[in-house]
């Protein structure tokens, strides 16, 4: 279900990148730029005022960090999709931001076309994920000591997909392997994210997170 125009907000403290991203969004007819901000200090008002569909969020910003900003957005505007942006793909912060409510993340060095795809996916409810993030998610589920009710357990398929991701398969290869479509794969991944969000709200999990990530 494609919307007609996807409204995008950008939060990025690097001036050159902020302006280039803005330019990119503006150039593309599918997107509409709401506003680009250098920091997320007033993200609540800004989001409330403009109500974008997708927010591109830099993780490392002065003042309020990207992860906290994601939380604020998710708490107040649950329909807004947040994609994290980072230079580093091994950053634990990415994982935490997903637990905080981001739907995906992009490496800044990705080709712009990939970035455009990711925004589109996120807007449609997808969840772009890379293998290293996936393996981290798997570890989290393996390491949990507290019995959780079935709702938040990963299903067999979901585990399978995660494992495949860990082993280096792309979405396409997973789809082939599991004999499902890529969209199904994406759907599973989204569910995985959802489960993470449930997790993240449980006290026990945040404790386990703390133990693991600090």
């Amino acid at each position: 279900m494609k919307k007609n125009v996807i409204r995008v907000s950008i939060y990025e403290d690097n001036k050159a990148l902020r302006e280039s991203l803005s330019k990119l969004v503006e150039t593309l007819p599918e997107f509409e730029l709401c506003k680009a901000y250098p920091n997320a200090l007033n993200i609540k008002e800004e989001t409330g005022k403009l109500i974008p569909d997708v927010i591109l969020m830099d993780i490392g910003m002065p003042g309020l960090s990207g992860i906290e900003a994601v939380k604020i957005v998710k708490d107040n505007f649950p329909d807004v999709k947040v994609i994290m942006q980072t230079v580093f793909d091994d950053d634990d912060k990415v994982f935490r931001s997903i637990c905080a409510g981001a739907v995906g993340y992009m490496l800044k060095k990705s080709a712009p076309s990939d970035l455009i795809d990711a925004i589109k996916q996120a807007a449609c409810g997808g969840a772009p994920m890379t293998p290293s993030i996936a393996s981290k998610v798997l570890h989290l589920f393996r390491q949990q000591h507290i019995p959780v009710n079935n709702e938040v357990e990963l299903s067999v398929r979901e585990k399978e997909i995660l494992t495949s991701l860990t082993n280096g398969f792309s979405y396409k290869m997973i789809a082939e392997k599991c004999c499902i479509s890529i969209d199904t794969v994406r759907f599973h991944i989204k569910n995985i994210y959802e489960k993470l969000h449930v997790h993240s709200m449980t006290e026990a999990v945040s404790k386990a997170l703390k133990d693991r990530l600090i």
């Binding site: 990025e12 690097n14 050159a16 990148l17 902020r18 302006e19 280039s20 991203l21 330019k23 990119l24 150039t27 230079v87 800044k108 060095k109 080709a111 712009p112 076309s113 970035l115």
Partner: peptide, 15 residues
Amino acid sequence: QIGSTLSSISIYSEV
């Protein structure tokens, strides 16, 4: 810092 700036070059070039 540098990564971000280089990324911006990549994006500009796309634009």
